[in-house]
Nucleic acid binder design. Sequence first.
RNA 1: GGGCCUGUAGCUUAGUCAGGUAGAGCGCCGGGCUUUUAACCCGGUGGCCGGGGGUUCGAAUCCCCUCAGGCCCGCCA
Length: 527
Amino acid sequence: MHWADHTALRLGDRGGAQVSCSGITPSGEFHVGHLREILSAEMIHRACLDAGLESEYVFIVDSMDPLRRVYDFLSDSYERYIGHPLAYIPAPGPDGEPGDGSTSYAEHFLNPFLKALEEIGVSPRVVMNHETYESGGFAESIDRSISMKGEIRGIIESISGRELDDDWFPYNPRDSEGSMDGVTITGYEKPYVQWIDSHGVEGRSDIRKGEGKLPWRVDWAARWKIHGITCEPAGKDHGAAGGSYDTGIPICRLLGGKPPDKMTYEWIQLKGMGAMSSSSGLTIGPMEALELVPPQIMRYIIARSKMGRHIEFDTGPSLFQVAEEYERLVSEPPKEEGGMSKRQKVAVSTQEGAIRLSQIVRGSEPSESIGGVSFSHLSMLAQIKKSDEGVWSSLRKSGHLAGEPSTSLVGRLTRMRAWIGGPHFPEDGRVRILTGEKGEVRAEIGQEGLAFLEALCLALEGGEWDYESIGTRIREAADKVGITRREGYTTLYRILLGRDYGPKASTLIGEMARGDFVALASSYFPD
RNA sequence: GGGCCUGUAGCUUAGUCAGGUAGAGCGCCGGGCUUUUAACCCGGUGGCCGGGGGUUCGAAUCCCCUCAGGCCCGCCA
């Protein structure tokens, strides 16, 4: 059984309406790793729906989290915003300088990510955490936390083994400037927390407004209760013994909530960009991945791996492998049959789940995601056809496409071109026409091969220059010199690509200029 | 120091939670194929399930120990 289905089953035992949740701090650019956070929770949500449970998927944006430090992409001007909630500081411009404040720092990084989520079929209910504070959603939890300060302190100290400062308080108010750093609590009188800040200014914060926040470990526990969260997969950093998951569970109970079960996932690692990656500083950018990888495949990369396993995100050769695996499973869906062992049945249902959860639109027919064209075929066409229209007409000719291409197919081609044009495309996948004679190739093709090339060049010097005629000429030439057609094709691939195989030879040659092909072939003839 | 995850065929892995005869894909090998879109069809090869011990009628699966790799314990998923 797929991990998401299995989790859904357990959640069903728990009963009630299910709320799966992800939480991310928008402190900078989002990246592929965040997709695992999102998709782990979203797939569980879908699995719950598939299991007939009432379920919702919520994405909580930690917009109330303070700016921790001035990151590399920020100008020094951000120094003054350290400690301020990300929702209340201006977005940086391209130069790293603070903008006019029309867009907040949190929104600035969040918005493109939400667009990417839309592309992969994730439509969460987005909760800006600072808004929950502003609307008083946290007020009751803050009040309880303050009244049970000792208990919470005890939980954190005993479970995390960390010692809290004597003046630790389960609420961090914003000071006279808006920062949450260096504020000393002087009293509490519901609903106001009184304080004195580092500038010596005294003030009070209304816990029903966005005038302060709970510390992280308490904040997390409180939101489980506030939103009725039943499932929240978290990065393994939170899962360490004594980590925030371990303290969150008892704190949530203390606040009167029913916490989700601890669930953690492994990181995605960026690897496989070839040996040159580290030395040449090649890294995959934040959302770059979705500009290369079709959204179903992106989902499949997450869905096919168990949560506890590392994922090596690789935009090189293994992307072909994953895509082919996906296509194979989609075109020949695993079926449970009589006589299968229990293990085989489990394997079938796991694969079925992975494919089902990889669809952009829940419940849609997987085969539609392929659009009749395989990943590798498209990569070839994208390389030998300069124009998109050329790709479509070729697909029509080969029977892969009837009429106009679907938007998903257009998107796949756009991504494919971006991939091919970028540094991550694997060399093995490249169609590169050789430009001149190669000694080792000459040795491989032999006398019969040469005779075949001569006959073919002669035939191709005149006549139509289209795929069909070229194909005919190839077969005629092979027959004429008495070699098998297969040998003829192999010879062509050797002189064209330096390999024994390749895309349809007549198409390949048809995309070349007549003169170029003849020149290449002739370079093997004896003078 | 504390903790987590992973280790199954050449490669990627399913199966581990609920113990019951080791599954799959790729690769490879052989055969077939009178138009080869990195094919396609058929058949085959291949695994002391990291190692050791224990529990059990029975262990890849549970327990203990051990080796190897990755990672987390400063609010970076």
